[in-house]
Design a protein around this nucleic acid. Structure first.
Lengths: 341, 341
DNA sequence: TTGAAAGCGCTAACAT
DNA sequence: ATGTTAGCGCTTTCAA
């Protein structure tokens, strides 16, 4: 029934050569060991015929490394992270590494479990966007000298390398843009209070608010989810003093926001303006094309990978903490109300 | 520098017990081997203290299985597949399996490479949405008795289990809906000609067209991509006889379609109607909420997983080939022109 | 109730 | 130019 997988010993027997010779040929060490052309050809021929593929599990055990990098995302259903997963796995494949994508579901317990699994599976490195500020499990990884780099979200108080957007600057600029367009009553809908992007977006907003004397604002919400965007928008629309602009702190939040706005028959930007973090192709085709603060996803991935490999190769990391400037993509969801007051 | 990972032998030495005892305790075989409470506690305590996690690579080599399932998706940037990846990995985790997500990038060569990798890594099973009708590499997997189930896309001519939407029925119903709404000139924009979903969508469309005497139609395009949707729409809008309705065969195609329509200042559905395969939260918030044919993603995942485990456990699979009915979600992108001719 | 040791498939150090 | 063998970390058979 069960067809035994063929192994290096089978090749050895079929060819009359020793397993070491097979191993050498297959690992490109033929010249180094001056293995004759004839032998090489014979090996390759038999390998081809028997469709032999070396058992990586055994190779990994022997070598102690797996040529596997783990990528932990908070949610694959978030297009921002799906995009990152796609980019990272493609890039790593070019380096002949396999990517193990783990979805932590925005859940610390799951994240811990996964980290455990990943370490047990001997991954060579971990790229993580942590779901909280809790670091015990992360410290444990670092203690074991397993290379780890944070992307997007990171730990403010720890010396763990990271690559992220400059969320402070992004929020600062976004707010400035809103204010320049005459908005004096702004509501922010934020995401997870435990995440650094949220922390810095909030700070960036507040800094600009302070700088320009903006007093009439609110910051509400607590999750990077459609539902949060929806609920918070619903609530603020029922307050006596509606904002003239909403600053959504993520793509999913914006979606919930739009849903609520629609139910209230409020048009964007005629009745209320909207700007959001995160770009996506569909934003352009929404009933009102959405102005957004786009993050440099490809760069974040590229640099995170580079840093991880610097760690893996014990090269020194010069810029341990990187923040990349996001940029505003102007579409049509912010109205200039400077002269309409 | 490099902190040696602690292993079972370390635990053995630290506890003064043999490695077999450690292994037994850790694998829940304490009662089976009548290991004393004291011994158990001692083991657990030391394991806890030293934060020992068994090396899964060694376990895998020894046991010959990995408790890992590979999920091959054609593209993670397609929200349909990102969604599937998310659902599958969450479901498999519940079963205490790890998911290895691989992005084949709609590319046969990459898919082959990945299959190779996956087999070499001793995955216990493979869930694949193949990027072509080429099956040599798939046959090789099956020959080795590695359980494999196709989802979404499959092989029409092979006896390989699959779970997919009933794309024929979906297209049939979608076309019927268009015709009932008075459309007599319909353009389909299709995706990859090599994929079964496309094949059956095309057939479903043609069947309904024939049945209702629809003559004036075209089927064009060749890729499940935004660009394809864009280009094909652009082309058909320049023809002398514009269609009154477009049937897009995927979410990405629809996005390209909308982009082109917008450039031509054509309103949906006033100037032209649009229906597409695949649902997504944002479809509801597009300038015209898009009517679509939604696939039962959760069910597809659940059944694919069940079938895979039937294979893994050598249980018999009763329904080897499953097609699940999709359903139309009525939004606002199809106009009734029956009385406007 | 516990331990010793073989062996999973491979690589590489040490032969020759 | 090629072969022999130890050992990676674990599970499990066999022994006690």
């Amino acid at each position: 029934m069960s067809v035994k997988k063929i192994n290096i010993k089978d090749i050895s027997e079929a060819s009359g050569l020793s397993v070491s010779t097979i191993s050498r040929v297959l690992n490109g060490k033929a010249k180094q060991y001056r293995i004759s052309k004839k032998t090489q050809e014979k090996v390759l021929k038999i390998v081809e015929e028997l469709k032999y593929v070396p058992n990586q599990v055994a190779v990994n055990l022997k070598r102690g490394n797996t040529r596997t990098i783990a990528l932990i995302v908070p949610s694959l259903n978030n297009p921002f992270f799906a995009n990152i997963a796609s980019v990272v796995s493609l890039e790593l494949r070019k380096l002949d590494y396999t990517t193990l994508i783990s979805d932590s579901n925005e859940n610390l317990e799951m994240e811990k479990e996964e980290i455990n699994q990943l370490v047990a599976r001997n991954v060579d490195g971990i790229l993580i966007s942590p779901s909280s500020q809790e670091t015990e499990h992360i410290d444990w990884v670092v203690e074991q000298n397993i290379p780890l780099v944070c992307y997007d979200r990171f730990f403010s108080k720890k010396h763990i390398p990271y690559v992220a957007s400059d969320n402070y600057a992004g929020a600062y600029e976004g707010t400035k843009y809103l204010i320049e367009n005459g908005h004096k009553r702004i509501a922010c809908i934020q995401g997870s209070l435990l995440s650094t992007p949220n922390e810095f977006r909030k700070k960036g907003f507040e800094a600009m608010a302070k700088e320009s004397g903006l007093k009439d604002y609110m910051i509400t919400g607590s999750e990077f989810s459609v539902r949060n965007g929806y609920t918070e928008t619903l609530l603020m629309l029922q307050a006596h003093n509606k904002p003239t602009a909403i600053f959504s702190f993520s793509n999913n939040i914006a979606l919930g926001c739009i849903k609520a706005l629609k139910e209230f028959n409020l048009r964007v930007p005629e009745d209320i303006s909207l700007i959001t973090f995160d770009d996506h192709p569909y934003l352009e085709y929404l009933s009102t094309p959405l102005t957004c603060i786009a993050q440099p996803v490809e760069e974040i991935c590229a640099i995170a990978i580079r840093h991880l490999f610097d760690l893996i190769n014990k090269r020194e990391i010069i810029y341990q903490k990187v923040q990349l400037k996001p940029h505003i993509i102007h579409r049509k969801s912010v109205r200039n109300i400077a002269f309409h007051e």
